[in-house]
């Protein structure tokens, strides 16, 4: 990441991020620079600290170090305050409001954009932002369906749609294609590139085929540290990555 790449665009800067649970250090000095308009992937073996990085950036885990977005410090803020800054996330297990319809789910995501005065007032009609988001994630025809009966893949899309309604500028997605069919994966990958043009997208992923096809930038985490960062080709050529991560997959044994 060279300095001239960083323009006046919003970007997420993480430096020396540390997260520990008791004596266990889950994230040990991670540095990331995440630019707008690129789809970033965070990969690494189980327990590498990928989800913990996202948790720390969204206020669910207490992190130390520096994490700024658009000049605002993220660490130490509560989750909802971070969400209001435009940093949104999805969860590993597709997490939506199962009892509410697709429309209601999207609607709740748009709450913060409404004026405080409207807090007690009833509303009618579908707001534009909601209709656009539903269209973008391909759920327009399911608006009145309870979210609980959606397929796993559709729930993941709904989550992403909620982030769009929320007008999140950074989307931190935790394993969005886990449990999806090949077709759904392709649709998701294309969706990420479509919405990623004006946003910063960070995806935690295990499926290396998916990473290869859709990643602009890949960062490999191992044991809470950044092992390597760059294009998929650079990552693949990196001997340390091969030893630690890709090797595990190829041989199915852990490195000694």
């Amino acid at each position: 990441m060279t300095a001239e790449l960083i323009r006046t665009d919003d970007y997420l800067e993480v430096r020396d991020l540390r997260v520990s649970f008791g004596d266990f250090v889950a994230v040990d000095g991670v540095a990331l620079t995440l630019l707008q308009g690129q789809v970033h992937f965070l990969v690494g073996p189980n327990g590498a600290g990928k989800t913990t990085v996202i948790d720390a950036l969204t206020g669910l885990a207490r992190g130390q170090g520096v994490a700024t977005f658009d000049g605002e410090d993220l660490l130490g803020r509560s989750s909802h305050a971070i969400a209001r800054l435009g940093v949104g996330r999805t969860f590993q297990t597709a997490t939506v409001f199962n009892d509410l319809t697709v429309l209601q789910n999207l609607d709740i995501a748009g709450l913060r954009h409404r004026r405080r005065r409207s807090l007690w007032r009833a509303r009618h009609g579908i707001p534009d932002a909601v209709a656009e988001a539903a269209e973008a994630v391909g759920l327009s025809h399911l608006l009145d369906r309870p979210a609980g009966v959606l397929s796993h893949g559709q729930k993941q899309w709904l989550e992403i749609g909620m982030l769009l309604v929320q007008d999140a500028r950074v989307l931190l997605l935790d394993e969005p294609v886990a449990g999806m069919s090949a077709q759904e994966r392709d649709a998701t990958g294309e969706l990420l590139h479509r919405i990623g043009r004006e946003r910063t997208i960070v995806v935690v992923e295990h499926d290396m085929e998916f990473v290869r096809r859709y990643a602009d930038v890949v960062t490999v985490l191992h044991a809470g540290r950044v092992l390597a960062s760059g294009s998929m080709e650079q990552i693949r050529a990196n001997p340390e990555v091969q030893r630690v991560y890709l090797g595990d997959h190829a041989e199915g044994v852990s490195n000694a």
Partner: peptide
């Protein structure tokens, strides 16, 4: 209702639980 249904999700949507 969002907070009842899922606290973490509500927070991540910018709702102060």
């Amino acid at each position: 209702r969002a907070t009842v249904a899922n606290r973490d999700l509500a927070e991540s949507l910018g709702i102060s639980t």
